[in-house]
Amino acid sequence: MTVKAASHLRGKDLVGIDQLSPEEIQLLLDTAEQMQEIAKRPIKKVPALRGKTVVNLFMEPSTRTRFSFEVAEKRLSADSLNFSSSGTSVEKGETLLDTARNLEAMQPDFIVIRHRYAGAPHQLARALKSSVVNAGDGAHEHPTQALLDALTIRQKRGTLAGQVVAIAGDLAYSRVVRSNVILLSRMGATVRVAGPPSLVPPGIEALGCEVHYRLEDAIAGADVVMMLRIQLERQGKMNFPTVREYYDFFGLTPERVKLAKKDALVMHPGPMNRGVEIDSRVADGPQSVILEQVTNGVAVRMAVLYLLAGGHGEPVAD
């Protein structure tokens, strides 16, 4: 399966992978691949988004995603404004719409939003003229994470089509799993997910994956093993007994890695719980591409911003 890249993105926003066609995904990955070259220059900055304003609206704690977006914005010469608050609109006594209107009054070109609740980026995108980029919404989507994961796999394995990717962990509360399953299956990969049955949401296979309960079954013969963070802070105490027992059954140990292909990639979106979902020997081992994922994150976010900056006005003839 080869996918021809689209000539442009159809929407003004990037709220999820679900809205993207395979051709658009290809365009984003191709563009990101070109963006990687900028990081190798003596001057790691291009003027493409000069004069554009990006508001980084982080309504949930995040370090790496926010830094990654900031680096991407600076490398494209955009002006970044950071707004961090762990509170929701309710706690601030302001509706989401008010927040949106206040931001719009500052006339930003982009709003990069991380939010505790699913759908907040969609609601903002509807209300705003600015381009809205989802930097993670609740347990819904994290599109730039999936794109950087895909870029990493593509670079290491040459293609996404035909790859067998195992994703394991907290499937119920992970936004990374949703975006990754949709993206990888759309690009022709075989996706297997694994997690405790009490953390497998109903109908997840409809996103484009096979469901396994035993980690070993998912990993067997895989090209890529992607471990998800166990979101201890999101868990009630009823989904699995203890972290210790979780590691026993779902921790990625060197022995379990051996079940995958010999040169299989080990990935993790971070931040890792070492000794919970992943053993340090694996995280720091030769098959780990975890730090490359971080590097690729910047290029992917540059590509997203660049492609969305294409103006929303009247079409102009070339």
């Binding site: 699913a118 347990a139 819904h140 936004r175 949703r178 109903p202 409809a206 996103l207 009630g236």
Partner: peptide
């Protein structure tokens, strides 16, 4: 119901909303 906000099923899973 716990903290559910919409019907639990493939749609809630896709939307990342608690079912």
């Amino acid at each position: 119901v716990a903290k559910g906000v919409m019907h639990e099923g493939p749609v809630s899973t896709r939307l990342g909303l608690r079912g």
